[in-house]
């Protein structure tokens, strides 16, 4: 009898443990399966594909690093690659200054909770929620050289000389697109910065004020160092966003980076290489994959370095 009770006991414990394992598997399996199938598998395949020759959708023979060589050193591709890369660099620098600089200023002002604080928050954030497609087309209409609102406005206020085909000139096209992007996104860093400022204990700022610090000194010496984590995130997100930039130039300048490739980006070049276009010729999955792998390595390396560096200057708010 005593023996029988003991086995019941062992079985019951084992059953409970198995049930728990089953339950955990049930919770985790769907998410892991989806992520593996549609994110990890394609990411790994991209590397795999880049070392093969491709004929349309059919994989050809193993070619080693030939695709990489073609992307980097082939005279024709190479010209496009360098042009697009430096355009992306310009976008990153310009967005850091215009978009994030403005966002920081707005956040510092909003942090003082002026009258209309809620209204300003909503106004600045409103474009953020809209699709890039809407923003892109809307501004394309506004920037139309003849009847676009921008030029009409300039003519109406007596600045007719300034009216120009903004998106048609290589000198102004990229700048215009960057400003449109800044207009679209500025609310996002503004509110991230604002949230970071609000997390700084009010006592700290009050104490600095009692010590006789000016508002400018408070911003520079107290707020700026303590909002460092938010700055890190915004810098890294801006970096990734700039080098993945696709929608605005695609909609406003087209797949070939019009005018005269002055708005060409790595994203557009990748799309053309992979799926074919006038300049890039037929669709080529091999060189396309190689280009994707290179872009990924570049973004990953630099965002990791930037995160490391920026995190090291963060101060913990205990």
């Amino acid at each position: 009898m005593a023996q029988a009770i003991d086995t019941t006991y062992e079985n019951a414990v084992a059953r409970r443990r198995n049930l728990r394992k089953l339950w955990l598997a049930f919770l985790l399996f769907p998410a892991m399966a989806i992520l593996l199938t549609f994110v990890f598998l394609p990411m790994a395949s991209a590397v795999w594909y880049s070392v093969y020759d491709w004929d349309g959708l059919v994989r050809g023979e193993f070619v080693g690093l030939a695709n990489f060589q073609e992307v980097l050193f082939d005279a024709r591709n190479n010209k496009f690659l360098i042009n697009a890369f430096f355009n992306n660099v310009k976008v990153f620098i310009a967005l850091m200054i215009v978009q994030n600089g403005l966002a920081l200023t707005l956040a510092l002002l909003l942090a003082r909770e002026p009258k209309g604080y809620r209204f300003y928050q909503i106004a600045f954030f409103l474009p953020v929620i809209l699709s890039t497609v809407i923003i892109g087309f809307q501004w394309k209409l506004f920037l139309n050289p003849i009847f676009g609102l921008v030029n009409t406005l300039l003519r109406n206020v007596g600045l007719g000389d300034w009216a120009m085909p903004w998106l048609g000139l290589p000198e102004t096209a990229l700048g215009s697109m960057i400003l449109v992007n800044a207009w679209h996104w500025v609310g996002f860093p503004t509110l991230v910065f604002l949230a970071a400022i609000h997390r700084i204990p009010k006592d700290l700022i009050e104490a600095a004020r009692l010590d006789g610090a000016s508002e400018w000194m408070i911003a520079r010496d107290i707020i700026w160092p303590l909002m460092a984590p938010a700055v890190t995130i915004i810098v890294v997100l801006t970096f990734i966003g700039s080098f993945n930039w696709f929608e605005i130039p695609y909609i406003m300048g087209g797949l070939e980076g019009a005018p005269a490739y002055s708005t060409d980006m790595l994203g557009l070049l990748f799309y053309r290489t992979a799926f074919g276009s006038v300049s890039a010729g037929n669709s080529d999955f091999g060189t396309g994959s190689a280009l994707a792998v290179l872009i990924f390595i570049f973004i990953f390396t630099f965002s990791t370095i930037a995160t490391r560096y920026l995190t090291s200057r963060e101060v913990e708010l205990s």
Partner: peptide, 23 residues
């Protein structure tokens, strides 16, 4: 498993568009 999910945050799926398309 937490790290597995976390690493998914850093993979820009757009760059894997070719294999994804074939898949």
């Amino acid at each position: 498993i937490s790290l597995f999910f976390l690493s998914g945050l850093m993979l820009p799926l757009r760059l894997a568009i070719i294999p994804l398309f074939i898949q």
